[in-house]
Write a protein that binds this DNA or RNA. Sequence first.
DNA 1: TAGAACTCGTACACCAACGTACGAGATAAC
DNA 2: GTTATCTCGTACGTTGGTGTACGAGTTCTA
Lengths: 213, 213
Amino acid sequence: MTASPRPGARPRRADAERSIARIVAAARERLGTDPNATTDDIAKAAGVGRMTLYGHFRTRADLVDAALRDAVEDGDRTLAAVDLAGDAYEAMRRLLVSSWALVAESAALLTAAQGVLPAGRVRELHEGPAARVGELVRRGRDQGVFRTDMPTAWLVGVVQHILHGAAEEVRAGRLEMAPGELSDMVTKSVLAVLAVPPAPGPSPAETPPGRAV
Amino acid sequence: MTASPRPGARPRRADAERSIARIVAAARERLGTDPNATTDDIAKAAGVGRMTLYGHFRTRADLVDAALRDAVEDGDRTLAAVDLAGDAYEAMRRLLVSSWALVAESAALLTAAQGVLPAGRVRELHEGPAARVGELVRRGRDQGVFRTDMPTAWLVGVVQHILHGAAEEVRAGRLEMAPGELSDMVTKSVLAVLAVPPAPGPSPAETPPGRAV
DNA sequence: TAGAACTCGTACACCAACGTACGAGATAAC
DNA sequence: GTTATCTCGTACGTTGGTGTACGAGTTCTA
């Protein structure tokens, strides 16, 4: 709740604005690697005294919140640039590639946030991206390319779990793979969950048109 | 490393054995809900003095390790009872239903362990169940019912992420659903990832025999 | 160039949870 | 029934990170 455009307050001085930006950036960078990075670590990484940090963020939670908010907004902007028109299946593929890069980058930050922020806050901040995915899923269902036998909310959840799970593994150093390959696995796996399943039972004919997966 | 059958040490007195059992049970119960439960919480829940607890577990990490070990062994025993013969697809369905119950029960315990235990230890303890899943996946591939275009290790990972992700959501209170329904979603989602994808391209004929998903 | 805003070091109070020390009393083992 | 083991309360030392206090110096802003 500290820092960032506060309505009705006198504008911050330019150097303060600069400090804040550096701190938030450092927080994203450090917390994106080690969820237990201390305020001191972050201040150092920002090239700023710890006291300066506390001048702008009353508590560690405040800082984490700001970092996450920044990361999400940033990501949301990137995702907004993804072309979601046309075939929902292909659109989802594009969206996933972009999302993966973002998620992988902030893997640990999310963990840190979950530990420090009040329950629900993390969710609240993710509403934007989640809505984006949800919307696309819904469109895919209308187009008949995504399955309709599970709630949209559940599907969106699964997408997130695969994304974050993979990101965690990468961070932990298990899972050695070329970045491109990883992005591919994630995409394939998620699309497999979303796609309409092959028709059940004895009628093998009316399967949905094959997809390059 | 404390507690639990130590080779070559004089046997523990019966009451000590009993205390240990109660402590481990309490640890599983409490840590299964709140990953930040303190040693004091756990001792109280076990109906035992904190000092007694420290008499058997030198450190908190020791305790968490014991709790997780116990949970995994316990689960492994349950899973060993699942019939994995015959069609791998159906076998996996059975395995998932059992696994889900276990994972859901110890959701937070895993989180606690990740925070306290040395990196890799959690993985090590999960080797048993993971191997079980991996083995079945491999068999499914041989049978031609599971996809072969992604490494087994990756697939196993995805299964875990969906399982644990869903468990976390339940614990956090989001995701209101009947338990049975949940188990169903998990199963469907996982199987969707594992199943051979519909044939790509123009040849819509040779799709694998439809599956009731 | 005056003054407000900002930086930042040192030093410290604080807090929660961990883990230890001591020792009297209960209880199992033989 | 004797002895080693175990229980468990109180009290204390430790640690590591958070947040505050003070105050001198620096840099914007106007």
